[in-house]
Design a protein around this nucleic acid. Structure first.
Length: 848
RNA sequence: GCCGAGGUGGCGAAACCGGCAGACGCGGCCGACUUAAAAUCGGCUGCCCGCAAGGGCAUGUGAGUUCAAAUCUCACCCUCGGCACCA
């Protein structure tokens, strides 16, 4: 008997995992009863995916820890709603259509089928009954409906805006414009800008409200990025007028926005955006050729290039002048690409003495620099300023500013604006960096914008009862990259809903960010065909309690979602004005080469192969163990074997507590100096201390240290395997705690072990995932002594085991008597003894 | 360029509040078990000097604050995310 060394069967995920997945599905364990009010609700949302074809480990990296959160909350008795869906419109489907001659819909649905299968292999607790697919007319119909409400509210409007344009392939997305040469990805033609009439949503109306994050538990960096993206600037709008010349009569209004009206006397020239509407009219005939060349060049540059502060400043004078309203001075008008048409008024007054970009510009082109602000007490510069003085100190004084000389700059700011305001030439103003949201896309695979154009009635909204405006199925998307909807007469030609006369449909479709701006509301009632959202469920379940997804969405998706919620609230559709109470951004898993995973780079890591080899639990646990969840990093599978080993050890501990390791002579005997009673105290103490830290780690999403703590506990239990205490009550308690703690992260193996324990005790089966999260036994977890590090002059010299709760004097006496400390003191008298952080460390200071 | 994040052993990382740098795991080395291998189990493993006891050095670089700095401050270097038509 004793020589029999047969081990328990190994853990075999390939048989255990599918069996439990099937059982959970059969029992509909994760279908949420949204009407159940007996328990607290927990709406857990993870960013839905674009159906690109295959899941990669990056998808697992977001979703499996989120699933652990869902399970953790269920174990706390909450009614958890954890839906999934697909962000199914978008450019890649159209690209696939062009390249592979497959219909975008076919490509998309084929990918969705595959990804559904892959998502199910995670063993996650998604509520599939709530699934949303945005390219389904039952979904995009409500995009159209919402658009029409926004149109009624004045939140949607149409105006012209430039697009990247290829003469052969029409509008191009940013990623379809290649290289610094800016050429078309398909035909290589030089890309130009073209102005098109397009639809916008008025996000700027909510700019101030979007700056308010009160009540939201969001990461600070995301709040800062959104705040900077919105970019609120307080200042004034100043009215300059153009001076008369030989070629034009003057008297045109030129409005500028400035944050520094106190520097107005230092405005020595004016710069218009090359796209500014007055440029053509004001330009002198002899300047025209040069100006037109410059405007063309500026239009082909990207905004990132134009706003670079590093780049050499460029610009040309247009041969006209403006009148500075404070002193009547004639100042030359230039155009330069660092001034953008879309920001402020598209025109600036240049104050080179007090703005870095203006200084660089004036220096390069020999324009005058007039100092008008000086630090208090500073002498005036002897030979002119060597750099711009941009400091905004409250004690700065105004100089060379007529009757404002000697005034503090902040007072001058107000005084100058008040004075000009009384003359109708200025007013206080606020400008935002954020621009209204351009939602028009000249593409096929998106939600058609539901308006028609009638020669008689102009822009006419499609009536609600005619929604959805369906995408025609059979279109010619092979001809060119231009929107195929324009080539489909059956779609294009319609009748005006108002007059019944001939009309044409809008052929632009919506930005897919429109779809993702309200999908979590739709999850609550995906099949509802009378309204986009069911108000009662929305009121009960939103805002979302926890949202997880990538930080790459910090400003666009997450800002649009907030805007949409506010706009929907103003349309009376929802009650809350914020979508996501708590946000977490996990890091990105990069390819092994450190680059973003993408098919074209060939660095995509396929989770199916890993699951086949190690099982879903190991992959889940490894992704959690890799590092902090918000960090991400390059993918490397080295180390996954360690996690697989850990799961195997838990399996062995749970099913074979009395086994002896033939390779370890100490196996099966208690550690030296321990009897059964102390061993059991050690086991219970370790288990309950682990429970305390693991609980905190789950709550803080510190999954990597959570796994480490469980490894430590299993290592400790392994030392007691085969001894007299193995299989005893303390042991069994520790094993049960270990399984419960591991259950949210590794749901299959823990479910199997739990079922076997129940069967061994002849108890009826119940899922471990329906068990309550255990409570810490504080008495068991308490420690009696701890190790105290002792430093002399900040260097570690000794460690002392001390009882918990000694006074500082007792500790000091103990420590000063230690031989190593005496040696380190070398006869010198301690100057101070510092007791840090409640017995964490003692530092003895001796030098003078 | 602008906004945001991050740089710690051979590798992934830990140190949550300014208090023992390197938990946990990978890899490596040594051992046990085995006819053998695999698997499994145990031990050691930041670098340098030393037989050892011990000592010195060390958290991207350089300065500073402090009894004490991976952690705070300043400057610089490098990597990653976003920059409005990829999602």
């Amino acid at each position: 008997m004793t020589t029999e060394r047969t081990r328990t069967e190994r853990y075999d995920p390939s048989s255990v995992e599918p069996r439990w997945q099937a059982r959970w599905a059969e029992l509909e364990l994760y279908r949420t009863d949204l009407g159940d009010t007996s328990r607290p609700k927990y709406y857990l949302l993870t960013m839905y995916d674009y159906p690109s074809g295959d899941l990669h480990v990056g998808h697992w990296y977001v979703k499996t820890p989120t699933d652990a959160i869902a399970r953790f909350h269920r174990m706390h008795g909450e009614n958890v709603f954890f839906p999934v869906g697909f962000d199914a419109f978008g450019l890649p489907a159209e690209n696939a259509a062009i390249k592979k001659k497959i219909h975008p819909a076919a490509w998309t649905y084929q990918n969705i089928d595959n990804m559904r299968r892959q998502l199910r292999s995670m063993g996650a607790t998604f509520d599939w009954a709530s699934e949303v697919v945005t390219c389904d007319p039952a979904y995009y119909r409500w995009n159209q409906w919402l658009f029409l409400r926004f149109l009624e509210q004045g939140l949607a409007y149409r105006t012209t805006a430039p697009v990247d344009w290829c003469p052969n392939d029409g509008t191009l997305a940013r990623e379809q414009v290649e290289g610094v040469e800016r050429r078309c990805w398909r035909c290589g033609a030089k890309v130009e800008k073209r102005d098109l009439a397009q639809w916008f949503l008025r996000i700027t109306k909510y700019a101030d409200e979007l700056l308010d994050f009160r009540g939201l538990d969001w990461p600070e960096p995301i709040r800062i990025m959104q705040t900077n993206w919105i970019g609120r600037s307080e200042g004034a709008e100043i009215l300059f007028t153009t001076a008369p010349d030989d070629h034009q009569p003057g008297g045109d209004d030129l409005r500028v926005f400035t944050t520094r009206p106190d520097t107005l006397f230092g405005a020595t020239f004016m710069v218009l955006a090359p796209e500014h509407p007055l440029v053509a009219r004001l330009t002198a005939p002899d300047r025209r050729a040069e100006v037109e060349t410059y405007v063309a060049a500026a239009r082909s540059a990207t905004e990132i290039e134009r706003l670079s502060t590093e780049r050499e400043k460029t610009g040309v004078p247009i041969g006209a002048s403006a009148i500075n309203p404070v002193n009547g001075a004639r100042i030359p008008i230039w155009i330069a690409d660092y001034v953008l048409a879309g920001y402020g008024t598209g025109a600036i007054m240049a104050v080179p003495a007090h703005d870095e970009r203006d200084f660089a510009f004036a220096t390069k082109f020999g324009l005058p620099i007039v100092e008008v602000i000086r630090a208090a007490g500073a002498p005036g510069p002897a030979n002119g300023l060597s750099e711009a003085y941009v400091s905004k100190s409250a004690t700065d004084l105004m100089v060379n500013s007529g009757r404002f000389d000697g005034q503090p700059a902040p007072a001058g700011f107000r005084a100058i604006v008040e004075w000009l305001k009384s003359e109708g030439k200025a007013d206080f103003a606020v400008t935002y960096r954020v621009r209204d949201w351009l939602i028009s896309r000249q593409r096929y695979w998106g939600t058609p914008i539901p308006v028609v154009y009638c020669a008689v009635d102009g822009i006419v909204p499609v009536p609600d009862e005619e929604l959805p405006v369906r995408l025609p199925e059979h279109v010619d998307y092979q001809g060119s990259g231009e929107n195929p909807l324009r080539r489909d007469p059956a779609f294009l030609n319609t009748v005006c809903p108002r007059c019944g006369g001939p009309a044409t449909r809008e052929t632009d479709t919506m930005d897919t960010f429109m779809d993702s701006s309200w999908y979590w509301f739709r999850y609550l009632s995906p099949g509802l065909d009378s309204a986009p959202v069911e108000r009662a469920l929305v009121d009960r379940w939103t805002p979302v309690d926890q949202y997880t997804g990538g930080a790459e969405h910090a400003v666009m998706h997450l800002l649009y979602a907030r805007f949409f919620t506010k706009a929907m609230a103003d349309c009376g559709l929802v009650g809350e004005r914020e979508p996501f109470r708590r946000l977490f951004n996990q890091g990105q898993v990069l390819g092994a080469d450190g680059e973003r995973m993408s098919k074209s780079r060939g660095n995509v890591e396929d989770p199916d192969a890993l699951v086949a080899r190690y099982g879903a639990d190991t992959v889940r646990l490894y992704l959690m163990f890799m590092g902090p969840w918000d960090q991400g990093g390059p993918w490397s599978p080295s180390g996954i074997g360690g996690v697989a080993r850990f799961i195997g050890r838990v399996w062995t501990l749970a099913l074979d507590p009395h086994g002896i390791e033939p390779g370890d002579p100490a196996s099966g005997t208690l550690p030296a100096g321990e009897d059964a009673a102390t061993a059991e105290r050690t086991i219970r103490g370790a288990a309950h201390r682990t429970l305390a830290t693991v609980t905190a780690d789950y709550e803080a999403f510190h999954f990597n240290t959570m796994v480490a703590r469980l490894m430590e506990l299993s290592n400790l239990l392994f030392r007691y395997r085969g001894t007299d205490v193995a299989g005893g009550s303390a042991w069994d308690e520790a094993i049960a705690l270990l399984e419960l703690m591991l259950a949210p992260a590794a749901p299959h193996v823990t479910e199997e072990l739990w079922a076997r324990h129940l069967a061994a005790r002849d108890e009826a089966w119940r899922s471990i995932h329906a068990e309550r999260w255990p409570a810490v036994d504080a008495a068991a977890a308490a420690v009696e002594t701890h190790e105290l590090p002792v430093q002399v002059n900040g260097k570690l010299r000794d460690r002392v085991e001390v009882a918990v709760g000694l006074s500082e004097a007792e500790v000091e006496a103990l420590v000063l008597a230690r031989p190593k400390v005496v040696a380190a003191l070398d006869g010198k008298t301690p100057l101070r003894v510092i007791h840090a952080g409640g017995g964490r460390l003692v530092n003895i200071v001796v030098r003078g």
